[in-house]
Amino acid sequence: MTDALSKLLSTRDWLMADGATGTTLFNMGLQSGDAPELWNADHPDRIRTLYQGPVDAGSDIFLTNTFGGNASRLKLHDAQDRVRELNRLGAELGREVADKAGRPVVVAGSVGPTGEIMAPMGPLTHELAVEMFHEQAEGLKEGGADVLWVETISAPEEYKAAAEAARLAGMPWAGTMSFDTAGRTMMGVTSADMVTMVNKLAHKPLAFGANCGVGSSDLLRTVLGFTAQGPEIPVIAKGNAGIPKYQDGHIHYDGTPELMAKYAVMARDAGAKIIGGCCGTTTEHLKAMRAALEGTPTGPRPTLEQIAETLGGFSSASDGTGEGAPEARTRRRRRG
């Protein structure tokens, strides 16, 4: 049987994903330092509301509240023995919401980074990473997630470990990396590097791409880098709603719904097939994005100049690729 995401991808020119999980939960009262995943057990009604928002705004895909649901991150909250439970609950709540939507909506089981540095730079071995991701994947599978959604990854080794875990769980998956360091991930991966890596994976994702990062302009530059390689696998674009600014004791993102609507259309025209938002993206942004995607005819591939003029300038002069780009090793750094 064809999985739910592949079915949708085969019948549509584009799909809209969801927006920001963290931003929404903080607006609901989550405190800094708390584990959002505990709310899957403690505040299920709030998590249903979290999921219902993007569905009502027109999203075809929403991510579960399980981004930090691996043993390494949950250990910080003395909840490392609850990995399977919290992931199962997060997916079950999502399944409830999706099944009542009246249209096909994909429940994507969010799998974020472990928070550890992969060997040989750090202590996390490939085997341990696979074990952690596999445990999380089995919980999401039990809860009824349609697909695993690996996101905000920086290290290629961690991306590969997540791919192996998805294979062990017998689950389809999609995976994005965060290009937040002058067009590269924190561990030095470029857009071209990611396409090469994805093509070599034994258990390939249904879709791949970029999420989070610096701003929507930078993210679209990365998307152009993907599509320039001519990948056969669909591309994902999940950019932040503008740039974060600290105001009145809180982080606010300056991207308006109108700006994110323009971003969504440009992402589609740049070649992305799955388009959503990341940090700062609310249901109001999503509604505007959906309306723009439905109401704006497909246009030519945007240029870098058009992206900068429409969405704002880039955070760096280069996307990390091409002649004159800094060597990857200059982008590699330890978390201190």
Rank of each mutant, 00 (worst) to 15 (best):
L25D: 02
A169M: 08
R95M: 02
T256H: 04
G209T: 10
L63K: 12
L304I: 12
G188N: 03
T296N: 04
E232D: 15
H252F: 14
K100D: 13
G143A: 11
Q306S: 13
A264R: 10
D56I: 02
G312D: 00
R184G: 03
G215Y: 00
S154N: 14
F179L: 08
G242E: 00
G144C: 08
T152A: 04
V107K: 10
Q80C: 12
H203T: 02
A20Q: 01
T222K: 06
L74A: 03
A145D: 00
D13K: 10
I153S: 00
K238Y: 00
D193Q: 02
G239D: 05
G299T: 06
G249W: 12
A98G: 11
D218S: 09
G320H: 02
V111D: 04
G299D: 05
V97L: 09
E284P: 07
I307A: 01
P231C: 09
D319H: 11
H285Q: 07
I153D: 00
L148P: 15
A57T: 07
A241V: 00
V147W: 01
M171D: 03
D81L: 03
L201V: 11
T321R: 08
L38C: 05
Q80T: 05
A192E: 14
Y51I: 07
V83E: 10
M194G: 07
E138Q: 15
T298Y: 00
P120G: 08
R12D: 11
R184A: 07
G336F: 10
L50K: 13
S318H: 06
P231R: 01
T222R: 06
E142C: 07
N70E: 01
E258R: 05
E164Q: 14
T281S: 10
L38N: 09
G230I: 01
P326C: 06
E305S: 14
G324L: 09
V55Q: 03
A137I: 08
A237H: 02
R95N: 04
M197C: 05
R333H: 09
L38D: 06
A91E: 03
G170W: 02
A174R: 08
T310G: 13
A155I: 02
R268T: 12
A163E: 06
